[in-house]
Simulated scan of single mutants.
Amino acid sequence: MDLEWMGYVAATLTTLSFVPQAIKTIRSRDTRGISLGMYVVFTVGVACWFGYGWALDSWPMMVSNTITFALAATILGLKLKYG
Rank of each mutant, 00 (worst) to 15 (best):
A55W: 15
F18N: 04
D2V: 01
F18L: 12
L36C: 06
F18P: 00
M6C: 02
D30K: 12
Q21H: 02
G83Q: 10
D30G: 03
S17P: 13
I23D: 06
T31G: 01
I26T: 13
P60V: 08
A10R: 05
Y8D: 01
R32M: 07
A22S: 12
V19G: 00
T25F: 14
T31W: 01
L3P: 01
G83A: 08
V19E: 01
L36Q: 09
K24A: 11
L13H: 11
T43K: 05
A55M: 14
Y52D: 05
F50R: 08
L80K: 05
A70T: 03
A10P: 05
Y39G: 00
V44F: 14
S35G: 00
W5T: 01
F42Y: 14
G33Y: 10
Y52W: 14
N65T: 10
V19P: 01
R32A: 13
L78T: 10
L3S: 04
T31A: 04
Y52H: 14
T31C: 02
S64L: 09
M6K: 02
P20L: 07
M38R: 00
I75Q: 03
S17L: 14
N65Y: 13
G33S: 11
Y52V: 09
K24N: 12
L80F: 12
T43S: 15
G33F: 10
I26Y: 15
A10M: 12
R27H: 07
G37C: 04
D57V: 03
G7N: 06
I75G: 03
A47W: 13
L71V: 02
T15W: 03
I67N: 08
V40Y: 11
G51M: 13
Q21R: 04
Y8R: 00
A11G: 15
T25W: 14
T43A: 12
I26F: 15
M1Q: 09
A73C: 05
L80T: 03
L71T: 03
T66N: 04
V46D: 03
T25C: 13
L13W: 11
G45R: 08
G7S: 05
S58N: 14
S64C: 10
Y82H: 15
T14H: 12
N65E: 10
L13E: 09
G53M: 12
W49F: 12
A11H: 12
G7T: 05
K79I: 04
F18C: 02
I26N: 06
G51C: 13
C48P: 00
L3N: 11
I75N: 02
A22Y: 03
T14G: 11
K24P: 02
K24F: 06
L3E: 03
L3K: 08
S17A: 15
A73T: 04
L80H: 04
K79S: 07
K79F: 10
T25V: 15
E4F: 00
P20N: 05
A72S: 15
R27Q: 13
Y8P: 00
I26W: 15
Y52K: 06
T43F: 05
T25D: 12
G7M: 04
W59P: 00
A73Y: 09
G37L: 07
Y8E: 00
V19F: 04
